[in-house]
Measured scan of single mutants.
Amino acid sequence: NQASVVANQLIPINTALTLVMMRAEVVTPMGIPAVDIPRLVSMQVNRAVPLGTTLMPDMVKGYA
């Protein structure tokens, strides 16, 4: 099973992602693959992402 990107903290809307905000976890359903974490750094979320939420492609501006 491939790990997905999960929020390590509450990420407010329009926040630029940093490594500290994300962790890799095997979850269902799968979200953004953990291998993409370096690519996500400095991209912004388009909604508030609660702690423990799996990041989906439509939550990150410019990802999809």
Rank of each mutant, 00 (worst) to 15 (best):
N1V: 12
N1K: 15
N1L: 12
N1I: 14
N1R: 05
N1G: 09
Q2G: 12
Q2W: 07
A3H: 08
A3T: 14
A3S: 10
S4E: 01
S4G: 07
S4P: 00
V5M: 02
V6P: 00
V6C: 04
V6K: 05
A7S: 14
N8C: 03
N8K: 12
N8G: 09
N8E: 12
Q9V: 05
Q9H: 13
L10A: 09
L10H: 15
L10S: 13
L10E: 12
L10T: 07
I11P: 00
I11R: 01
P12G: 06
I13G: 12
I13N: 10
I13A: 11
N14W: 08
N14T: 04
N14R: 09
T15R: 06
T15N: 07
T15D: 04
A16K: 07
A16L: 13
A16W: 13
L17I: 06
L17D: 00
L17C: 01
T18W: 03
T18Q: 11
T18L: 12
L19Q: 08
L19R: 08
L19N: 10
V20F: 08
V20K: 06
V20S: 15
M21A: 08
M22V: 15
M22Q: 01
M22N: 00
R23L: 05
R23Q: 06
R23N: 07
R23S: 09
A24M: 14
A24K: 13
A24S: 12
E25C: 03
E25K: 06
E25Y: 05
E25L: 08
V26G: 08
V26F: 08
V27H: 04
V27N: 04
V27E: 03
V27S: 07
V27C: 03
T28S: 15
T28K: 15
T28L: 12
P29V: 06
P29K: 10
P29L: 06
P29R: 05
P29G: 05
M30G: 06
P33M: 12
P33F: 04
A34V: 05
A34H: 09
V35T: 15
V35H: 11
V35F: 11
D36C: 03
D36H: 11
I37C: 03
I37L: 09
I37T: 14
I37K: 06
I37P: 00
P38C: 04
R39H: 15
R39A: 07
R39T: 14
R39D: 05
R39W: 10
R39Q: 08
L40S: 00
L40C: 03
V41P: 03
V41L: 11
V41R: 12
V41W: 04
V41H: 05
S42D: 09
S42G: 14
M43G: 04
M43Y: 07
M43C: 03
Q44M: 14
Q44S: 14
V45H: 00
N46L: 15
R47K: 15
A48M: 11
A48I: 05
V49Y: 02
P50R: 10
P50K: 08
L51D: 12
L51Y: 14
G52A: 10
G52V: 02
G52S: 08
T53M: 13
T53Y: 15
T53N: 12
T53P: 00
T53E: 08
T54K: 05
T54A: 07
L55K: 00
L55Q: 00
L55E: 01
M56I: 11
P57C: 04
P57L: 04
P57S: 09
P57H: 08
D58I: 06
D58V: 12
D58A: 11
D58G: 12
M59W: 06
V60H: 01
V60K: 00
V60P: 01
K61L: 15
K61W: 12
K61Q: 11
K61E: 14
K61I: 11
G62M: 14
Y63S: 04
Y63P: 08
Y63T: 05
A64Q: 15
A64S: 12
A64I: 13
